[in-house]
Amino acid sequence: MKRTIIAIVSSNPSVLGRIATLMSRWNLDIDCLTMQKLGTKEGTSDISMLINVEEAHQTEQLVKQIDKLVDVISVADMT
């Protein structure tokens, strides 16, 4: 099933790599990914990912793992 995950992160060069490492560990393909600096708050960016998971439970665990990253300010499954 397709899920859309949206995260607000601290803008720094390693944050995307950290999230990508998690995706790799979970063996998840990213169908679509965008990242952009937020105009509203300096030092923060928005990452939006479309992923394909087998069951909803997976996304719940993945969101928790992404949320554990210190550079991630907030994250949610916005599907």
């Binding site: 390693s14 790599g17 950290r18 490492t21 560990r25 990253l69 210190v70 550079d71």
Partner: peptide, 14 residues
């Protein structure tokens, strides 16, 4: 080192 240790640490900084 940041790349290598990212999955082996709670967090890392350069």
């Amino acid at each position: 080192v940041i790349g290598i240790t990212a999955p082996a640490t709670k967090h890392n900084f350069q």
